[in-house]
């Protein structure tokens, strides 16, 4: 396996891509301060597939938001490809989310006024790529999730499983190397959910890093490593780190 270029950084396979150092996240609820996560130390390697499990309120989604630079820790540091996110401006964080991180949610969040391929191409266009290049890359992404023939359909004409496949294509299109998925199978039946898990696993086999939040053990089992969170703390892990 050769080295992979991630943005301006060169990552050797297995090198840490996401690092949490002493990360804690507090929330203020009225006069009370609630600790939602941490303190947490964690390293996720490039190309690794990690599942985060735990009951409601255990801190899974808070951790994912921190990985994705959607939130900032109250204490500690989050490093992505060696960069401390705390040192980045809001514009730089937005650029990082567009170029390096893809998100997949339970609700597919496709824009209803755009066709499937336009949805997939949109992040690239927003990032300033020429329309033609964006469409070419989007077509490749659609092909790799088995949705090439659905490219010109609107979301309302697609099933839930098909919409989620488009959402996955949108999440990894372009140069992105990290996929963050929050209960991506929550709205799907078992067989369709498995199709989605196979696609996420396939992305991992191609060298992308996947972090999956799920409450479903059968989906977590697709990961290389399963982390259990409880009350914001890691309480157990399975699989090979």
């Amino acid at each position: 396996m050769s080295e992979r270029v991630v943005g301006e950084w060169t990552l050797a396979p297995g090198s840490p891509q996401l690092v949490l150092q002493g990360v804690t996240r507090f929330y203020e609820t009225g006069a009370e301060t609630v600790r939602a996560l941490g303190p947490l130390d964690l390293r996720i390697a490039a190309g690794e597939f990690v599942a985060l499990m735990g009951p409601s309120g255990s801190g899974k989604s808070t951790a994912l938001a921190l990985f994705g630079a959607l939130d900032t820790p109250s204490e500690g540091r989050v490093l992505l490809n060696g960069r401390d996110l705390a040192g980045l401006s809001l514009d730089a964080l937005a650029a990082l989310r567009r170029r390096e991180i893809g998100f997949v949610f339970q609700e597919f969040n496709l824009l209803p006024g755009l066709t499937a391929i336009e949805n997939v191409a949109l992040p690239l266009e927003l990032d300033g790529q020429p329309l033609r290049d964006a469409r070419l890359q989007a077509a490749e992404a659609m092909e790799s999730v088995g949705m090439a023939t659905f490219a010109d359909r609107f979301p309302e004409d697609l099933s839930g499983g098909e919409q989620q496949r488009v959402a996955i294509a949108r999440a990894f299109v372009g140069p992105r190397t990290i996929l963050l998925a929050d209960e991506p199978t929550g709205a799907l039946d078992s067989v369709t959910g498995e199709v989605v898990m196979r696609l996420l696993r396939a992305q991992c086999e191609k060298g992308r890093t996947v972090v999956l939040v799920t409450h479903d053990s059968t989906h977590a089992a697709w990961a290389d490593r399963v982390l259990h969170l409880r009350d914001g703390q890691l309480v157990g892990l399975e699989g090979t780190p």
């Binding site: 696993r201 089992a221 697709w222 399963v226 259990h228 157990g236 399975e238 699989g239």
Partner: peptide, 20 residues
């Protein structure tokens, strides 16, 4: 319970690997 959960999860991972 914790030790068994680890073993069960590893069994799930191994079965899922076969499924692939």
């Amino acid at each position: 319970v914790h030790r068994q959960r680890q073993a069960t999860m590893q069994r799930l991972q191994s079965l899922t690997l076969k499924k692939m």
